[in-house]
Amino acid sequence: MENGSKDDLPKIGITIGDLNGIGTEVIIKSLIDNRMTKQFTPVIYGSTKTLSFYRKAMNVDNFNYTHVKNDNDFIPKKINVVNVWDHPVEINMGKSTSEGGEYAFKALEKAVNDAKEGHIDALVTAPINKHNIQQDDFDFPGHTEYLANRCDVKNELMFLVSDELRVAVMTGHIPLKDVAGKLSKEKIIDKLEVMISSLKHDFGIKKPRIAVMGLNPHAGEMGLLGDEEENIISPAIIELKNKGNLVFGPYPADGFFGTASFKKYDAILAMYHDQGLIPFKTLAFETGVNFTAGLPIIRTSPDHGTAYDIVGKNQADPTSMMQAIFTAIDIVKNRKEYSTFESAPLNEENPSKG
């Protein structure tokens, strides 16, 4: 990543997450090296009091930040903190409390507003507790569904990405018994089109190769173990192939991942949560990033939870948070490049446009 001037550094918003989880710790660890602010302008949404509490708990003296006193007046090459609240809030490290969820939502709401208004270029969300954050304005299974609702998007895609692997899921946070009923040819086509668009716009892959998993064991065994592959999944793949897309499958997930066939593809569409996330987290647990594709705003997140059991022990690994930040920066760059390419006139220097 090349250093930019003060004016063109991307502004990356970072929400503090559950106050009692490891979010603040991994944020501090990710940003403590001053070389980070030469690459982008961090904007932390939360509270300087919370940061001060964790800085003391971690015995960190060299983590400095500036309080943003005027809305959106972010200072390049400094760690900016937006005080979403000013009053003291009780922090109970490692415990799920109503305050932890309440203030995680306050930070998220402010950051999403700023992202939608273009004040920040991308959003990185620290982990929340999906239970204690529930309230009148957050009645969703997680970040992904909330962000889709705020952005008025009906077909978002939970995309787990790393340097080695990109996996998306057809169905996210729903019971396994409901998965088959949520599948249709049209829905699979919609998700694959979001994936194809994201791979082009967000990851700079001009002609992506995509593998689609089957739903049933052995991908249905030609109808013996289930007919969703023959009646729903294969017809969707064929239709997209006929439109010139490189989409293949359906493949049995066990053999596909067991033989490392994923290395031949730019991305994989799994049919349900664990089918995609178990192999992903096995292969890329510390470096994986959760990216919400299909949104007008850019949002990434570390691929771990609040980890209450290690809060305050200085054991939290910041690698996934750092990868989430770098992925967000790369997507900001890729979207700008794609937009520039699309708006450029067709000429001798740009013969492949379109």
Rank of each mutant, 00 (worst) to 15 (best):
R150S: 04
F140K: 06
Y338E: 14
L19R: 00
L147G: 02
N155R: 12
P235G: 08
N149M: 08
P127E: 13
G305K: 03
N334H: 08
P10E: 11
V60S: 05
T66H: 07
I79A: 03
H131K: 12
L31S: 03
S162C: 13
D33Q: 06
L246I: 07
E342G: 05
H304R: 06
G100S: 06
I27D: 01
K185L: 09
F256P: 02
E228V: 09
E228M: 09
V26Q: 03
P208W: 00
N245W: 10
S184F: 07
M170N: 07
M271N: 08
V112D: 05
V194W: 09
L19V: 08
D73Y: 00
G354E: 10
G354L: 11
E230D: 13
K6I: 13
P235Y: 02
W85S: 05
Q134G: 03
Y54F: 11
K130E: 10
D178Q: 14
A316L: 10
K154D: 14
L176I: 15
Y272I: 12
M213K: 01
K333H: 06
V194S: 10
N132R: 00
I128L: 15
I297M: 08
V60C: 14
G244A: 13
D309G: 12
N72R: 04
G4C: 08
E90F: 01
I329E: 02
I331D: 04
R166P: 05
K77Q: 14
L192E: 09
F256K: 02
E156P: 14
I210L: 11
F257R: 00
G244R: 07
T24F: 00
A126V: 13
P302A: 02
F326S: 04
K38F: 04
E186Q: 11
E230Y: 00
P88M: 06
E99N: 13
P217M: 10
Y308S: 10
N290P: 08
M58W: 00
D61F: 00
V311Y: 00
W85K: 01
H131C: 08
G294A: 14
